[in-house]
Nucleic acid binder design. Sequence first.
DNA 1: ATCAACAGCTGGTCTATACAAATAAAAATA
DNA 2: TATTTTTATTTGTATAGACCAGCTGTTGAT
Lengths: 239, 239
Amino acid sequence: MADRAPRQPRYQRIKEYILDGIAKRTFQPGCKIPPEIELAQLFGVSRMTVNKAIRDLSEAGILLRFAGDGTYVAERKAEAPLLDVNNIAQEIQARSHNHSITLYTLRAEPATEHIALQLGVHVGATIYHSLLVHREDGIPVQLEDRFVNPSWAPDYLAQDFTRITPNHYLMQHSPLTDIEHTVEAVMPQREEQAMLEISATEPCLLVFRRTWSHRNLVSFARLLHPGTRYKLRSQTQLD
Amino acid sequence: MADRAPRQPRYQRIKEYILDGIAKRTFQPGCKIPPEIELAQLFGVSRMTVNKAIRDLSEAGILLRFAGDGTYVAERKAEAPLLDVNNIAQEIQARSHNHSITLYTLRAEPATEHIALQLGVHVGATIYHSLLVHREDGIPVQLEDRFVNPSWAPDYLAQDFTRITPNHYLMQHSPLTDIEHTVEAVMPQREEQAMLEISATEPCLLVFRRTWSHRNLVSFARLLHPGTRYKLRSQTQLD
DNA sequence: ATCAACAGCTGGTCTATACAAATAAAAATA
DNA sequence: TATTTTTATTTGTATAGACCAGCTGTTGAT
């Protein structure tokens, strides 16, 4: 039991070499990197080992491979897709518009069966609940109905959510490690129509979002957007 | 130009064997699949070839591997990230349901101003247009209205889209390198209601998708999903 | 000048083998 | 019985070599 040193695979060094080269601009986006056989000689490994390293980077979208031609550095990085979607305040500010919040509810409640299931707590356990509307230049663009597990955000109720967003507070206190989204189209309920200042016939985008911090399910949010005022957008580069 | 037969790699057959087993419930979620060496004997290939097949499925989140133990069928369906929502056929098959297509339109047309803008061609240029409905066990789940740049998919009109999906054809002929999505909630038009067999009051998820292959804007699709029959789902692990 | 045939390069796949590392099950020990 | 050690199994990594298919640039013919 002496050597607990986790021996690093050789292909790892090659991956680092490539990634370093990209970071240091030795390998610029769009340029061709040395062929497998050359890297194999350079590192003193077999071609298949180089292949493993390059293939990994290719599957990760960092490199583009063309049989008979060569391997190229991808132009743009794959962005974390839906991350932008969560920070609506940032989004609005990026458009040079004014972001404001109307707070409707902020309190501790017992968890209903549905909420308990989503948050992974027992029915009746105390959870924190916030309900607020995000506005862009005064116009409602998102109804945020959020349930938080008190264990991972004890000071949640003490925050001033007319000044900072729940998302902002949570990000600071329990770093986001996992997100789950589901998106569907729905018709708004009566109270929701009022808070979003829309008609009963306007379809809405409903986004459910659950966020984890190191395996802990921190919060569960229901984000409702008027169909005519909001779009989700994402751009990704694959391989 | 004799052999247009795209020789299929051997590991592909092994992947299909596994995926079939999962679809047919021979390999149920959580159960262990045969070890590499056994599959190698079964298919008469070397272990490394089996390794490639299993590794691919593992990286896709369909299988879970444990050194010294074995390979297991993943419990949760690796839900496609929102961006992967492209392959609706695969999604349906993963649920062990029947996927079918009703084709409404497949023809060449002059590009309207809007389409030209989206596809990056000149107004009036000839583009290919397909309109079809995807069904899950006979029930419409997606209306696919697609416009394709003929330059990157010359044989598009010759395909039998009741058998393969446009997406499948495009993936084979111009590997996907970039995707752009926008998502919004809308009410369906009259004709759309009919094709999706829904009522005029059912909100729909409208997904615009543009796909690139090595910088070339290949296709522009408008995907309409009945709100009550479809959800987008995405799960992201950050770090 | 244009086009077709060819050769060389590059990645894609595959083999047969080998050893390492992790795990589970069996065996030996306290 | 409970714990430790051993063994067998399984995946992970790695090699050297091989052939194929697609791309590019060159050569050669028209």
